[in-house]
Design a protein around this nucleic acid. Structure first.
Lengths: 204, 204, 204, 204
DNA sequence: CATGAATGAGAATTCATTCAT
DNA sequence: TATGAATGAATTCTCATTCAT
């Protein structure tokens, strides 16, 4: 008698995969890639180390996917804003504000951005994911420039600068200082204004 | 007849330390801290591994100093510009332009910004060094705001954003794409304009 | 069908730990802590070096446990004698004789006494373990003094001297010379008489 | 013109040798063989590391000689007592008391006795030196036994036990606890009485 | 299928000894 | 002769990955 993969087992498999991803994300968020050793991930996920290799061919692949999942979530939200109605300046405003606020809420994504690639593979992915963020902003910028709402500029570079600006502001020296809600909101506004002025959108 | 330390010996000593630092810098620039293992550094520097520990008490200390040397060079140049004559906007312009141009010239500084903390010790230093850069820009901003040349803003946050903006633009997805002189100059101008608009300085 | 940890697996686990301990003990007994490098222990135990760190967090911890296991065995036996019936002098007699005889039988304990602290951690443990031996003898002495069976004396110091006396006699210059059974028994009697006279118990 | 070894140079050589020995002794006394690295010895002695190898072919040889010098000093004093006038019991009394008192005075010799051989070579020497001490006591014992002053016993074993007894009492768990003069004198008396009772000399 | 024990290739660091100057 | 910079073998410890059960 052989084992057939029952629907139930499928679900357990999916659950396992998710739990591994979540465990990894948790560990990376808390202590960087350094703390996300395979054994630790397995322990947090409640699976064996061997199990991890059923779903991911290597630790690097696991990391890449963790980054991917985190990025996708944010990209979806931002894209919703970017493709919505309203003037380019307003959409940019909303996108920047949303992104910064979410990043400050939990150490879920921001850390993953600077967290060093434990692997060249992860490095490559990291660059790719940052570009995805830039693309969302770039789209808004191009739209705004075409419609004359924004001054002419290198949309590609500006978009990268926007991403870099809040990355630095979030994870750099001034980031961790913002602990209470008041400080956080102040930081959100500072970054927001900076970026808006930077792209020439004076929505005030 | 007594033995005196000959100039040649002095030079060799200095050369060793410097060669170790240069070798480390080279390796970090090329492949990140990951590639700068003690054995590799020793090989590139043309010394034995033990030699490295004559000059640096640990690998972390070596890394910290490599970062420090690179940062100090740039800080000195930027500070010269920041404390010089001219309107705040002009000095900011010059500082940003200079910084970006130098970063694009060689892999001398840029890597220091993303390079992940192989060590908590290095991490701490890295944050500190980034802050140093921010402080130079912050000084110009505060000066400009006081004199009414720049709009009121959170100088601390803006400075961090400026640093982040060109960090991302330099080492992020669009950075490596700029290979020839023409592309590079275009990138310099893009980042420059972005930052100037961002702080409200429309020197055009 | 679920997987259960088979008895065989349990045994192999226990075996590994024990084999590591035994291998360490063997190497320390033969060549001191110096010879018990992690790689050597692994080789003798028939495991990989990494395996050792599954059971012991550091080499020092391994050494401490090796000492501890050896000491505990002996302490248990001695305590049984010390807390048994009979006059203090007789119990002391039995304890000393038993201890010395066992030490001469195999290189199981004696080495633990001289073996130098390869590590401050091990040093601390070594002192502690020696004190444990002293305490067994001290208890007998105090009992004998109280009951008037033994002359008044510093029980603490006398106990330490007893431990030192046979340590030296066992591992010192005269120890290894005693190869055959006859010599050994003669040594046992010599040490026994020395210690009994020393504490004032002339059971003859 | 070649250099001829002047008397002055001879003296400097001798001085160097002595300074190296003293430096080693100091370091061993303070921190065990572990702390007496060649570089440290050189620094304390005020010579270069290379200099050390002019006088000692290896570190082990240096250690052996340091032990030897320390032992010789003590042996001389003890022999003076042992070969002097008086009853065997009295001479033994004086020898033990002298030895223990001197050992407690400074951490000069006692430590060297248990301090683990950094080298098999040192190990061998250490055993040999301990035997030398035993021989002094053995001589007194044999004398006393022959003259009927002491009960018949295995002089060799008893001598080893005496050495072991105060070694343990000095460097074991109760040793370092005795800090002030009062405690020390009490320890001296305790060890003294123990040893005298042990060899059957009740000089009280 | 699921486990987690086992592996072993690295990586950092130390220090006795040598030898060019 | 004297120096101390330089060497590099040796040692401990880590952790991704595999595979017998």
């Amino acid at each position: 008698m052989t084992y057939r993969r029952s629907p139930l087992m499928e679900e357990r498999l999916a659950n396992n995969r998710d739990r591994i991803l979540m465990a990894t994300r948790k560990l990376v968020a808390e202590g960087g890639f350094r703390e996300a050793q395979v054994a630790a991930v397995a322990a947090v996920a409640g699976v064996s180390t061997g199990m991890i290799y059923r779903y991911f061919s290597s630790k690097a692949e696991l990391f890449v996917e963790v980054l991917g999942v985190a990025v996708e979530q944010e990209i979806n939200i931002l894209t919703g804003i970017a493709t919505g109605p309203g003037a380019a300046g307003e959409r940019l405003d909303a996108a920047v504000t949303c992104f910064v606020r979410r990043a400050l809420t939990g150490p879920n994504l921001a850390y993953a951005f600077i967290a060093e690639p434990a692997d060249p593979e992860v490095d490559t992915a990291r660059i790719r994911y940052r570009k995805k963020f830039g693309d969302v902003f770039k789209a808004i910028l191009i739209d705004g420039i075409e419609k004359g709402e924004l001054p002419d500029q290198d949309a590609e570079a500006s978009a990268a600068c926007v991403v870099g600006a809040f990355t630095e502001a979030l994870v750099g020296p001034i980031g961790p200082a913002a602990r209470n809600t008041h400080d956080k909101e102040r930081l959100v506004q500072s970054i927001r204004m900076f970026c808006l002025r930077a792209v020439g959108s004076f929505s005030k």
